[in-house]
Simulated assay, not measured.
Amino acid sequence: MGLDMYAMVTDEQFDSEVDFKPERPTELHYWRKHPNLHGWMEQLYFDKGGSSDSFNCVCVALTEADLDRLEADIKEAGLPETCGFFFGASDGTETEDDLAFVAKARERVKNGYTVFYDSWW
């Protein structure tokens, strides 16, 4: 048990940047128990109008602007301190992997794909 986190990609386009249901997603990146990144994504989800009572098993799309902001927050150690049952702890060693994700995601978005975050805990 624990926090499993996924960046997914699809060629599908959606009317909303939250709470959509892709039919053909493929995995772009995976994290295990990185709660501070999860907290950042949760805030993004609600900022974009997400309505789920729990930020679990819901999708939030990542735009170029979102990726720019995420990259800046990663570099500035600005991901929000986040905790949860079975979430584990972020310890700062994730930075290189997080930046590698941003680079991959940025390339896919540039090529017209929808990149989104989803999690399960």
Rank of each mutant, 00 (worst) to 15 (best):
H29K: 13
G92I: 12
S119A: 11
F101Q: 03
E96F: 11
F87A: 15
E94N: 10
A89H: 09
L79I: 04
M5V: 09
F14Q: 04
Q43R: 12
P22D: 11
A65R: 02
D118F: 05
D19N: 12
L62I: 05
M1A: 08
A72Y: 03
E96M: 13
L70E: 08
K104G: 10
A100H: 14
A89Y: 06
D66M: 03
M1V: 00
W120G: 06
I74H: 07
A72N: 11
D91R: 11
F20G: 01
D47Y: 00
E76W: 00
D97T: 05
W31K: 04
K33N: 15
T93G: 09
T10E: 08
D118Q: 11
A77P: 05
A65F: 00
G2F: 00
G78D: 07
R108P: 07
S54I: 13
M41H: 12
K75C: 08
Y113W: 02
E64Y: 02
S16Q: 06
G88P: 12
E107Q: 11
P35G: 07
F14E: 03
H34G: 07
H29F: 15
L28W: 06
T63H: 03
G92E: 01
D97P: 13
L62Y: 12
C57K: 06
R106M: 06
H38W: 10
A65W: 05
T26C: 03
G50H: 07
P35H: 07
V115M: 13
G49L: 05
F101H: 01
E96R: 14
L67A: 12
Y6A: 10
S51D: 12
T95D: 11
D11A: 15
D68A: 14
R108Q: 12
E81F: 06
S90Y: 10
R24P: 10
A72I: 09
P22S: 13
R24Y: 14
F101N: 00
E27W: 09
D91K: 15
F55Y: 14
L70Q: 06
E96P: 14
G84Y: 00
L28H: 10
A103K: 06
R108H: 14
G39D: 05
R24H: 15
W121Q: 08
W120P: 00
C59P: 02
M5K: 04
G92K: 01
F85L: 15
D47W: 00
A65M: 03
A72W: 01
F20Q: 01
S51W: 12
Y6C: 07
Q13N: 00
E96V: 15
D53Q: 09
H38E: 02
F86K: 15
C59T: 11
W31M: 09
L99G: 09
L70F: 13
G39F: 05
L44M: 04
F86W: 12
S51G: 08
G49F: 06
E71N: 08
G39T: 09
Y45R: 00
L44W: 03
S90I: 08
F46T: 05
I74M: 11
L67Y: 04
Y113H: 07
K75Y: 00
W40K: 02
R24I: 13
E107M: 03
D118R: 14
L3N: 05
D53M: 05
D53P: 02
C59V: 01
D53F: 04
D118H: 08
D73K: 00
H29A: 15
